[in-house]
């Protein structure tokens, strides 16, 4: 690392942690907003409380886990096709 370490706010782990916690707070607030705002359902069941939050989180975790499995199957060295 060069001499400018620490000059940037994001270089400090505690700041990143702050950001992370802040994001959780925003998320919770958005879910709670479901109580206030009436969300009309597009597909019938998505009007339920926190549907998008849950779906988004679960979908992404599933995506990443599935991708990790995929990587086991398809990952090859970088020069695979050159050989």
């Amino acid at each position: 690392m060069s001499q400018d370490e620490g000059r940037y706010w994001l270089d400090r782990p505690e700041n990143v942690a702050k950001l992370y916690r802040g994001l959780w707070i925003v998320g919770v607030l958005l879910v709670l907003a479901d109580l206030v705002v009436h969300r009309h359902a597009e597909a019938g069941f998505d009007g339920g409380f926190g549907f998008y939050g849950v779906y988004g989180f679960v979908a992404c975790v599933a995506l990443v886990l599935a991708a990790k499995l995929l990587r086991r199957a398809v990952m090859r060295p970088e020069d695979y096709y050159d050989r």
């Binding site: 992370y20 994001l23 959780w24 925003v26 998320g27 958005l30 879910v31 479901d34 926190g50 549907f51 998008y52 939050g53 849950v54 779906y55 988004g56 989180f57 679960v58 979908a59 992404c60 975790v61 990443v64 886990l65 991708a67 990790k68 990587r71 990952m75 090859r76 060295p77 970088e78 020069d79 695979y80 096709y81």
Partner: peptide, 26 residues
């Protein structure tokens, strides 16, 4: 909601070390 929670999923997976690291590969 959708975007923030998928962002959260990313952050969570990353912080827990579950997120697959970048690798030189094909």
């Amino acid at each position: 909601q959708l975007l923030v929670f998928s962002g959260l999923a990313f952050s969570w997976l990353k912080r827990r070390g579950i997120y697959p690291p970048e690798m030189r590969s094909v």
